[in-house]
Simulated scan of single mutants.
Amino acid sequence: MAFAMPEADPTAGPKTLGFLKELPGALADKLIQRSHAVDHPAGSVIFRGEGGVHVALVMSGLLRSYLSAPDGRQITYRYARAGDLIGTLDLAGLDVSRRVQSITPSRLLHFDAVQLERLAKREPALAWQMIEELADRLVQAYRTLAMRSFATVRWRVARDIIERAVAAGDLREGAHVRLTHQEVADATGSVREVAARAIRVLRRDGMIATARPGVAILDLDRLLHEAGLGA
């Protein structure tokens, strides 16, 4: 299977989550001391692409990172859950903004970006974690570009359903994936009518079923194959 299920414990303390658990204890403590935890309700846009750098660690919940164009079109390039690092960079000069939205009620540990940069310049362990994070973001950027340029809407919708299930920690036959047609359209860079048509085709072919609010996965192997993730 192409996706590994996330293993982070959303009830754990911040030092046991994500990149913090890979750092020496004293260094992790420095970052945590200057950070602050915030609870964000479902549907809230946490980072709106304002100037500067914003960085946070997901302690619980499910979020999406996406690009938004001036005409309202969106495309999701990543889902994040407990243990993942999220944030935005300054995209000055581009006609798109990079945003983060909570899908479920979420708790984030917001870091002091200035302190994070300063420590990364003198602490190799932290610098390496940031390099790995940026490398992962680059891979996601290439994947989003390829998906938007070459993939069919049906492929994109199947992939989005799989990624939502993985991010929720429940990729299996019978799993309920919460979504609306508009959310799928926003996630895949399409429009509601076209996304709804692709969902109907996947339902007609027996891969998913309607399970309001959202869908249920009926045939996981075929859905993975449809999304280009099959063996």
Rank of each mutant, 00 (worst) to 15 (best):
A2Q: 07
A4F: 08
A4L: 11
P6D: 08
P10Y: 09
A12T: 04
G13Q: 12
F19C: 03
I32Q: 02
R34H: 14
H36C: 03
G43P: 07
G43W: 07
G49C: 03
G49A: 03
G49W: 01
G52V: 06
V55P: 01
S60P: 02
L67H: 09
P70F: 10
D71R: 09
Q74G: 01
R78F: 12
A82C: 06
I86P: 00
L89M: 12
L94E: 05
D95N: 11
V96C: 04
V96S: 03
S97A: 11
S97W: 04
R99Q: 15
S106Y: 06
L108D: 01
L108V: 14
F111Q: 02
F111N: 02
V114S: 14
L116K: 00
R118S: 15
L119N: 07
L119A: 10
A120W: 10
A120Y: 10
K121V: 01
K121E: 06
R122K: 14
L126T: 02
W128M: 14
W128H: 14
Q129Y: 07
E133N: 11
T144I: 03
A146D: 10
M147Y: 12
F150K: 12
T152G: 15
V153P: 11
V153T: 15
W155E: 14
W155R: 15
A158S: 09
D160Y: 01
I161G: 01
L171F: 11
G174S: 04
H176W: 12
H176D: 04
L179T: 07
H181T: 03
E183H: 12
V184R: 04
G189E: 06
G189C: 09
S190C: 13
S190Q: 11
S190Y: 13
R192M: 05
A195Y: 12
I199D: 00
L202V: 03
R204H: 14
R204E: 14
G206K: 13
M207F: 15
A211F: 13
R212H: 15
G214R: 00
V215C: 07
D219A: 14
L220G: 06
L224G: 01
E226G: 02
A227M: 10
G228S: 08
G228P: 04
G230F: 09
A231I: 00
